[in-house]
Amino acid sequence: MSDDSRRTWRLEAVPGLDMHFWAEMLGDPNPIHIDASAARELGFGDATVNPGPTNLAYVLNLIADEFDSGTPSELEARFSGNVLAGDTVEAGFSRLEGREGQVELRRLPLGETVLEATFAMPKTER
């Protein structure tokens, strides 16, 4: 059962131009991140596709908000969908038990889950 009082993290209008920056840092020349026509031809939709690690950064932001800017000791993430330029996304805890839990990143307004992650925080603060 969801708990609406739990913290969420939201980004309105995922910026397409920043996808170039992320792809460059990652050394990722995949055209779907920089060329909307390439993304369309490969069946991803009508806009550039956010690099998966950028979506993961959103989830890490939520965890940092909850745990006083902390970094997890471990995280496992499954990428089940794509975020396109212009999308609004929201990360929220689907489970939170002490210093571990599960997070989902959803595309709004439909709420399609695009990333699920389980994480654990360090036993002691770093």
Partner: peptide, 11 residues
């Protein structure tokens, strides 16, 4: 068009 399916990170 390779895609990232999953990852596990240990800090």
């Amino acid at each position: 068009g390779p895609v990232l399916a999953s990852t596990r990170i240990r800090w």
